[in-house]
Design a protein around this nucleic acid. Structure first.
Lengths: 104, 104
DNA sequence: TTTTCAATTTCGATATTTATGATATGATCG
DNA sequence: CGATCATATCATAAATATCGAAATTGAAAA
């Protein structure tokens, strides 16, 4: 009986940390943009209307969590999604909160 | 350019609130159990080892968010998952954090 | 109707998250 | 080298989430 969930708590911690990484309106907006293709920080700021500091912090969090990664192009930093589960979660969210035939 | 994300912020808020509802190790443990079938509170407490107060609070949160619902059976309350997106997210998490051929 | 059992609500302490302003880094252009 | 542009880091305050203990509800058994 105590064995029913053996090992689960550890995985639950990981999974919860991953979900927390996505669970913010700002970060979802960022991921929504990145889902359409990689973007540099200035572009993300322009598209989302977020403050630069806030953007940096959210990008850092997503990067720490392994959801996105960066590449340096000349003077700008280009971010892109790298976590497969993140893409799948975004798909689920899109289907449920944005309808199925929306252009966005 | 300001129109690129028209209407998105509102949906991002909803989606983020939904994700926040799931984003806790305790609540994932609860949902893991409920994914295998409905359960009453005592059973959930026994299976997860959580304190009763904590269990109630997490169940309340999941219910507020529309993820689960309750039914009263004689003297006990039986909870079950009702949100389709929650099931899908759990599937994604399971595939990525628990491997694909685990009994759990 | 009194007791009992299952579960919830309330409350206060602690921890985590978030936003914001100021400062710092680091690559490039002149 | 010195200025500048893109972005990150630091510091702190405000908001939010979490946990445990004690008290409460509400249905049913006696």
């Amino acid at each position: 009986m105590t064995a029913v969930f053996d090992g689960l708590p550890a995985r639950a911690d990981q999974a919860a940390a991953f979900l927390k990484g996505l669970a913010s309106p700002h970060r979802l907006l960022i991921l929504c943009a990145l889902a359409q293709g990689e973007r540099n920080v200035s572009t993300l700021i322009a598209e989302t209307g977020m403050a630069p500091t806030s953007m940096s912090q959210h990008l850092a969090k997503l990067k720490d969590e392994g959801v996105i990664d960066v590449r340096r192009d000349h003077r700008t930093l280009t971010y892109f999604i790298v976590h497969p589960a993140a893409v799948q979660v975004m798909d689920v969210l899109h289907a449920h909160f944005c309808g199925s035939l929306q252009a966005d």
